[in-house]
C-alpha cells in the first residue's frame, strides 16, 4: 500500500507536466483552432538549448532563460507557418500539418542533439517540498502542478478580463470577422504560440531530469498531454488540469504493479479511447433509437 502511495505521489510531477501541456493544447485549440501535436516538441527544443548551454559551461539560470526564449521562438516559428499558410484550412488539415512538423522537429532535433547520446540535464529544483502521508513530495511535483494551476487561472483571467483576451475569444469564434473589425489576428495568433511555447519549455525543463533526456521521448509527451486535453474535451481548462494530474498519478501507480508496469505508457491511449467512447455515447444512443 505504501509503495502504491509513494508511486502515486511520484506520478504527480509527470501529472503536473501532462496537465500543463494539456492546458496549453486546449489554449491553442480554443484560440487558434489547431490541435497542436508539436506542443511538447517545441518545449523540447527549448529544453535542449538549456542542456547545450549548461554542457558548454554557461551558468544554469541564464541558460534557463535562453532556453525559454528558444522555446518561445520555435513556438512563434511554428505559429507563423500555421497562420501564414494554413489559417483558412480545416481543423483536420491543421492537425495533419502539426503531425508533419512534429516528425520534422524530431528528425532535426535528434540530428542536432546526437540521437541517443547521453546528456546531463541539470535538476532545476532538487529536493523535497514536504511529506504527504509519510511520502516525500518533491519540489518539482509542487512546481509543475503549481505552474499548471497558474497557467489555468491566468488563462481564465486573461481571456475573460482583458481586451486582448476578448479579441482572442472573438478570433477563435470567427477569425475573418475579427480581422474585418481591425483585430490584429496574426499578431495575436503568434502571441498564443509564443506563450504556450514558453510555458511548455519551462515545464519540460522541470520534468526532463526524471525522464530520458532524449529529443524523441520528450517530444512524445504530447500523447499524454492530448489525452488530458481530451478529458477536458478541448474546452475546459480545469477538467484538462484534473485529467493531466490523474493521468500522471495512474501512470505512477501502474509502475508498482509488475504485470502492467511495462505497459503503463499505453495508459494515455486507454484514456483517449474511454473519453471518445463516453463523448460519443449520445450519438450512439440516438442512432439506436
Amino acid at each position: 500500500m505504501d509503495a502504491l502511495l509513494t508511486s502515486a505521489v511520484a506520478g504527480l510531477t509527470a501529472g503536473g507536466t501532462y496537465a500543463l501541456l494539456g492546458v496549453c493544447a486546449v489554449f491553442t485549440y480554443r484560440l487558434v483552432s489547431v490541435v497542436n501535436f508539436t506542443g511538447a516538441a517545441i518545449g523540447t527544443a527549448g529544453t535542449f538549448a538549456l542542456i547545450a548551454l549548461t554542457e558548454a559551461g554557461y551558468p544554469t539560470w541564464p541558460s534557463v532563460l535562453a532556453g525559454i526564449l528558444v522555446g518561445t521562438f520555435v513556438g512563434v516559428a511554428i505559429g507563423t507557418i500555421m497562420t501564414r499558410w494554413f489559417a483558412e484550412s480545416s481543423a483536420s488539415t491543421k492537425a495533419a500539418v502539426t503531425v508533419a512538423l512534429l516528425v520534422g522537429l524530431i528528425a532535426v532535433g535528434l540530428r542536432l542533439t546526437g540521437g541517443q547520446h547521453p546528456h546531463v540535464m541539470p535538476e532545476l529544483f532538487p529536493g523535497s517540498a514536504f511529506r504527504l502521508a509519510g511520502v516525500e513530495v518533491t519540489i518539482a511535483s509542487v512546481l509543475t502542478i503549481g505552474l499548471a494551476v497558474l497557467f489555468t487561472v491566468l488563462s481564465d483571467l486573461f481571456l475573460n478580463r482583458t481586451r486582448v483576451g476578448l479579441h482572442l475569444r472573438a478570433l477563435s469564434d470567427r477569425p475573418m470577422a475579427a480581422e474585418l473589425l481591425g483585430v490584429k489576428v496574426q499578431l495575436l495568433s503568434l502571441l498564443v504560440w509564443g506563450l504556450t511555447g514558453a510555458f511548455t519549455t519551462f515545464a519540460l525543463m522541470i520534468i526532463a531530469p526524471q525522464r530520458s533526456p532524449n529529443f524523441m521521448t520528450l517530444s512524445l509527451l504530447v500523447v499524454p498531454a492530448l489525452a488530458a486535453a481530451l478529458v477536458g474535451l478541448f474546452r475546459s481548462f480545469w477538467l484538462t488540469l484534473a485529467g493531466g494530474i490523474l493521468l500522471g498519478v495512474i501512470e505512477g501507480m501502474a509502475s508498482t504493479v509488475d504485470s502492467i508496469s511495462q505497459y503503463r505508457s499505453a495508459i494515455p491511449f486507454l484514456v483517449v479511447l474511454a473519453v471518445l467512447l463516453w463523448s460519443q455515447r449520445e450519438a450512439r444512443w440516438d442512432d439506436a433509437r
Partner: peptide
C-alpha cells in the same frame, strides 16, 4: 461572435 455577449461583440470593434 456566437459565444460572446452582445456587449462583448460591440467591444471587439
Amino acid at each position: 461572435f456566437r459565444q460572446l455577449t452582445t456587449e462583448e461583440n460591440l467591444k471587439v470593434g
